[in-house]
């Protein structure tokens, strides 16, 4: 099990809470809510160790595409980067 934290300053805050997904094989749970401070924070707990660079690249690209401020929590059970990106986009649609 591994914990990864990513932070970025600035951005337009999300307005609502959004929750989706599940901690199930190949899937992940995403909690997205308005940030306590400003900027975006993503905290990942993943069951699969050793892929921090892939996680960072995936999350950085998401934040590049969406200039948002939000507190995002990801609880992962071996999802692929494609699934991670898709769930993040789905959560953002609900939270905006």
């Amino acid at each position: 099990m591994q914990r990864i934290v990513l932070e970025r300053a600035g951005g337009t805050p999300v307005t609502k809470r959004a929750h989706l997904g599940a901690v199930a094989s190949g899937n992940l749970e995403v909690l997205c809510e308005p940030p306590a401070g400003d900027g975006a924070t993503i905290v990942v707990s993943t069951s699969v160790d050793g892929y921090e660079p892939v996680w960072r690249a995936t999350l950085e690209r998401f934040l590049e595409q969406h200039f948002i401020a939000a507190a995002i929590e990801i609880n992962d059970f071996g999802a692929t980067p494609a699934m991670v990106s898709l769930r993040l986009e789905q959560a953002l649609e609900l939270a905006r």
Binding site: Y51, V54, D76, G78, T80, P81, A82
Partner: peptide
């Protein structure tokens, strides 16, 4: 193809 087969 999906870019990754499994998480890593």
């Amino acid at each position: 193809v999906e870019t990754f087969r499994a998480s890593g």
